[in-house]
Design a protein around this nucleic acid. Structure first.
Length: 240
RNA sequence: ACCUGUUCAUACUGGA
């Protein structure tokens, strides 16, 4: 079983969908059952390839067997639907997950991300409030997703409020959060605020990554500040 | 015992 599992995971890594499906149907009803984790990897592979219908069949097929779907399975499927723009399917799956008590903060994050990518601001903020009422604690992914949404909608003040809120609640921003904020500020031409955040992140022990530098350097070049850009570049090299 | 391992976030950059 383990051997089949790792074989399938390897095939998934290489994107060999047809080989994976062949192997799955070959094993169907056989003595060796694949575990939940292996199924989850297959679900993600199919979703990434846009074959959400096929993934969903597998998910439903997992239900009765010893290999029960877990949070990963449902969340993977949920993300597949929402990234494919299949909101009806995503919503009904989400409801099913609620009924089964199989919803966690990742499920909410996934829904929020899907809604925000579709520009559905109102529904996303509703869900964001709703999850708090249900006792699900927003984490750094949740906040970063919402901050991205607000910047996308040009609502910088709301983004800043959320950023402050997460800190007040003891949810520390990570490098992705900072990159989102910095990119958002620069988009709104708030260069000073952006640079302040770069210092702030360093002060709090959050190291900028390559992406941070790329965002800032690109902006410096656009502003015609080549000197600043080169300075940043060498700083980046020094810091690895 | 501990760590890692399958799910969600960044309008950066690159590859075919």
């Amino acid at each position: 079983n383990v051997a089949y599992g790792s074989l399938i995971e390897r095939l998934c890594d290489k994107g060999k969908i047809n080989d994976v499906l062949d192997l799955l149907s070959f094993m169907e009803g056989g003595p060796c059952n694949l575990d939940t984790r292996t199924h989850n990897v297959v679900l993600k592979l199919l979703c990434r390839a846009g074959r959400t219908d096929q993934a969903f069949k597998i998910l439903k097929h997992m239900s009765p067997k010893a290999c029960l779907p877990d949070y990963f399975s449902y969340n993977t499927m949920l993300d597949g639907f929402s990234k494919a723009g299949q909101f009806k399917e995503a919503t009904s799956l989400f409801r099913e997950m609620v009924d089964k008590g199989c919803v966690d903060v990742v499920s909410y994050n996934t829904m929020l991300n899907g809604l925000s990518k579709a520009g559905r601001l109102r529904e996303a903020s509703y869900l964001f409030r709703h999850m708090a009422e249900k006792g699900y604690i927003a984490n750094v992914w949740t906040y970063t997703t919402m901050i991205t949404l607000y910047f996308q909608q040009g609502k910088m003040d709301e983004a800043i409020d959320l950023f402050d809120e997460m800190i007040n609640k003891g949810c520390n921003p990570n490098v992705t959060t900072y990159n989102t904020m910095i990119g958002g500020f620069l988009l709104q031409r708030k260069v000073d605020e952006a640079l302040l955040l770069v210092s702030a992140m360093i002060d709090t022990g959050c190291s900028p990554d390559a992406r941070t530098y790329n965002i800032v350097i690109k902006e410096a070049l656009q502003e015609g500040k080549e000197d600043d850009a080169t300075a940043l570049l060498s700083e980046m090299i020094v810091n690895g």
